[in-house]
């Protein structure tokens, strides 16, 4: 058996024994708890281990992350009764050493550390879903939560921005008789950019559901 085949065998064995070794991201949803409060159906839940590995590295490199959070109320046939969506962005400003959460109304707009950010996503509370009066007693409902993070490829983010927003302009270097202005293009890079195909942004997604409940089962907080 060649060395290469041995290596492949060992690699497959590693995959079977330690599947987590290859998993870039292990975040999960847990503790989805619907309850009644202030005449509304509300839900608490927790996004665990989100700010780890590649997601944290990308965020801390100053690249914005797109976040989508869908909280869905389902009837026994799993048809959508109502849905609340938050589509926003998390950005880390390396220079101010500050995290900014845009359009994610259930979180504070800024935070100063990754530990705070982790803490907020691990304790998401009192997200309002439906007025209680709209729920039919004795019908078994379920709350499903879909959570996704979109990582823009660093190459897409930087190279395209550079090419599209700022041309490689040439200027006169010092005082001269003639003012000369122009541009230059690296043809190889341009060809590569157009023919390398669109690299899909990486998407990490997780879903979770509460246990089925009726209006009368609901805990009142």
């Amino acid at each position: 058996m060649s060395v290469l085949k041995l290596r492949l065998k060992f690699f497959r064995w590693l995959l079977l024994v330690f599947p987590a070794v290859l998993s870039a991201q292990n975040f999960q949803l847990s503790g989805i708890l619907p309850y009644a409060a202030e005449d509304s159906l509300k839900v608490d839940f927790s996004v665990q281990q989100l700010w780890e590995g590649k997601i944290a590295k990308t965020l801390l490199a100053g690249i914005p992350l797109d976040i989508q959070l869908d909280i869905i109320l389902l009837n026994p046939d799993l048809k959508v009764i109502s849905q609340k969506s938050y589509i926003g962005e998390v950005v880390y400003d390396v220079w101010e050493e500050k995290f900014t959460l845009l359009n994610l109304g259930i979180f504070p707009a800024h935070c100063n550390s990754l530990a705070d950010l982790r803490n907020w996503f691990e304790h998401i509370e009192r997200v309002g879903l439906n007025p209680l009066e709209t729920l039919v007693p004795e019908v078994k409902y379920q709350v499903r939560i879909d959570f996704s993070v979109l990582l823009l490829n660093k190459k897409q983010n930087q190279e395209l921005k550079r090419w599209m927003q700022s041309a490689d302009q040439t200027e006169e270097e010092f005082a001269s008789r003639e003012r000369s202005t122009g541009f230059r293009l690296n043809i190889n890079q341009l060809v590569q950019l157009f023919f390398s195909g669109d690299e899909e942004p990486e998407k990490f997604q997780v879903s979770g559901s509460s246990t089925p409940f009726t209006l009368t089962d609901l805990m009142i907080k």
């Binding site: 003639e178 003012r179 000369s180 202005t181 122009g182 541009f183 230059r184 690296n186 043809i187 190889n188």
Partner: peptide, 25 residues
């Protein structure tokens, strides 16, 4: 590992519009 081709263009008051349709770098 290979040279690259460059396309260049511009305007100078002395020379008017100019192009360097193919430059090898």
């Amino acid at each position: 590992h290979w040279p690259y081709f460059q396309f260049k263009g511009g305007f100078s008051e002395l020379d008017g519009w100019y192009l360097s349709p193919i430059g090898l770098r």
